[in-house]
Every structure is written in structure tokens, then in C-alpha cells.
Simulated scan of single mutants.
Amino acid sequence: MDTVAITGHGSYLPRHMLSNAELPPFDQPLSDDEMERIGVHRRGWADDTEGIAEMAAMAGQRALERAGLEADAIDLLILANWTARRYIPEHAPRVLRLLGAKRAFGWDISCACAGFLYGLGTAHGFLQNPRWSRALVIASEHTSRRGRPGSKAKLILGDAAGAFVLERKEGTSGRLIDFELATDGAHHEIMDISPESWVRTHIQQKELNALAGGSMCAVAQRVLDRSGVALDDVDWIIPHSGTAGVQATVVRELGAAPEKILANFDSIGNVSSASIPTVVDQFVRAGTIRPGDLILSAAVGTGWYAAAALYSVGAG
């Protein structure tokens, strides 16, 4: 297979980042202990000017700049989104227009919270064809709008966008080494959207944590085994943020050192499919993740989707 490099990354957070004190009232007031246990102290809620396409274009432009590319260099764009799906037109064509990517073709995918990793895997397949050399994969979500007003979901859910640039290219410090995609239809009914457009969960949170953590660990382990990489050789583990309980389950079941887990759940909440690229972008810019560091990411999404990727990011 041809090498697929990760040469750029970028993210976008809404202008309005709400602290816990700024949130609307809950149905039942939460104690300080409950708020601390949930673990989110701030989250972004997009305004009317920060649509899915607008946030995606901002994250995509920043990823392109880091890769040293103009938008016209991109051959294809994949946009992961489920929180604001449209029948026609989908969001990707507008993102291409906002970016000025006149040569590229693009389309939307869903796959819930696993959408970004599904997008990476899809782009990898296209880039094995010599007709195409560069892809932009973006996740853009209005997750805050899928929580019932007055519920704890409004404390946890936030909005964001994140993006990677992928190129068929040798000799870079960033590379998509391997990935795993899985779907288990036996669990397709455990979550859905109510007639009012809010997420509903039909199993207990403890069961959901166990299922999510187990699914992420299973696909992650398959990637490690196939690549011949031991968990100790991985520099950083970046799971889909989900909830603090899901993260704790992943750490426990993988047997990972907690200090290797990178997340921004406390500062931006659960931003669904945008969680992994926003973490990568944040910690690269902070100097925590260095070019060539080996990263293992995993995510799950209602459906029931699971995905994992082993990769490193380039110097930009």
C-alpha cells in the first residue's frame, strides 16, 4: 500500500464558551460534587453564524495552512456530521465553496461519534488510487443542540470542528499507519433521537460505559496486533471523549497508563466526532504531542459503530 501521511491538522471552537455558571437552569439542581464528578467545566455553543459548514471551513483552512497547502491542492473532502444532518444540499459542497477548493469533490458521512475515524479510513482508501493525492477530512458538530433542555446533557455536550490533511506522500513524520472499522447491528437500538430532536439512551449509563469502553478497546487492540505494536510503544492514547466514565473504562480495559491519555473533555465537553481532531490540534500546539509521536485513537458511535486508528502527525 502507498503511504498516507497526515501533514496538517486544525480545529475551531465557538466564540461563546460557557462556564458552568453560565448554563441555563437544570430540571434538578446539581451539587458541586455532582458537577465535579461529571467533569466538564466549559463548553462551546455555536451561534447562528457558526453553522456546520462555517465551523468546518475554519478548521479545514487551519489544517491546510499547517500543511502548507492551498485549498485548490485538495482532491477530495469528507465531512463527518450527524448533529445537523441535511437531506439536500448536504454540507460538504458549501464547505468546498467556503474554502475555495474548486478542484475537489466532497460529500458528507455520519457514523455518529465515530465519523471522523471512518472518514480517515475512507480517505485512505481513495488515496491508494493514483488519480488522487490529497484529502481533507473534517468533523463538524452542533452536539449541544442534541441535549434535552434542563438535563445533564446540556452540561456535557459542546460544539466544535476538527480537521486532518492526508497526502499520499513518503518521508514525513506524520503517517496513518493502520485503522480498524467495525459495526455491530445488535446494538443499533440503544440510542436514538426523540421527536423533539434530543438524544435518548435506552440502557443504563453504566451499561453504556461498559459497551463503549469495550468496543473501543477491541478495535484498538486489533489495530495494535495487526501492526505489531505494543501498547507500551504508543506515546499517546486519544479516545473519543464521550464521558469521564467511558474514558475511565478505556484506561482500565486497555491497561493503559493514565498519563498517556490526552483529552479536552473538561474544557470543551463531548463534541462527538470532532473530539479526536480537536485534542490532537490542541496538544500539538501546546507542544505536548511532538512530530512522529505514535498515537492510538478509538471511538464509538450509535449504530453501533466502532473505529480505531494508529498514526503520527507531521511537523507542519
Rank of each mutant, 00 (worst) to 15 (best):
residue 217 C to L: 13
residue 156 I to W: 04
residue 166 L to Y: 03
residue 261 I to N: 02
residue 157 L to Q: 09
residue 169 K to P: 10
residue 260 K to E: 07
residue 153 A to I: 04
residue 187 H to S: 09
residue 226 R to L: 01
residue 259 E to F: 05
residue 249 T to E: 13
residue 175 R to V: 10
residue 184 D to T: 07
residue 236 W to C: 13
residue 216 M to K: 01
residue 201 T to P: 11
residue 166 L to D: 01
residue 203 I to L: 02
residue 190 I to W: 10
residue 204 Q to S: 12
residue 227 S to V: 01
residue 217 C to I: 12
residue 204 Q to R: 06
residue 216 M to W: 00
residue 259 E to H: 08
residue 175 R to I: 06
residue 214 G to N: 13
residue 236 W to S: 11
residue 222 R to F: 09
residue 239 P to E: 03
residue 254 L to V: 00
residue 197 S to N: 14
residue 175 R to K: 13
residue 241 S to C: 07
residue 216 M to N: 00
residue 209 N to V: 10
residue 171 G to I: 03
residue 200 R to A: 07
residue 168 R to M: 05
residue 191 M to W: 10
residue 196 E to G: 03
residue 189 E to M: 12
residue 230 A to K: 14
residue 179 F to D: 04
residue 221 Q to T: 15
residue 231 L to A: 10
residue 174 G to C: 08
residue 213 G to F: 07
residue 160 A to P: 00
residue 164 F to W: 06
residue 191 M to F: 09
residue 161 A to G: 04
residue 210 A to D: 14
residue 185 G to Y: 08
residue 203 I to M: 01
residue 198 W to I: 00
residue 240 H to G: 04
residue 262 L to Y: 03
residue 213 G to A: 10
residue 198 W to L: 00
residue 253 E to D: 11
residue 252 R to E: 11
residue 154 K to G: 00
residue 155 L to H: 02
residue 203 I to K: 00
residue 163 A to N: 03
residue 212 A to P: 15
residue 191 M to H: 11
residue 158 G to A: 06
residue 253 E to M: 11
residue 215 S to W: 03
residue 171 G to P: 04
residue 173 S to N: 09
residue 263 A to H: 08
residue 189 E to D: 15
residue 218 A to F: 09
residue 193 I to K: 12
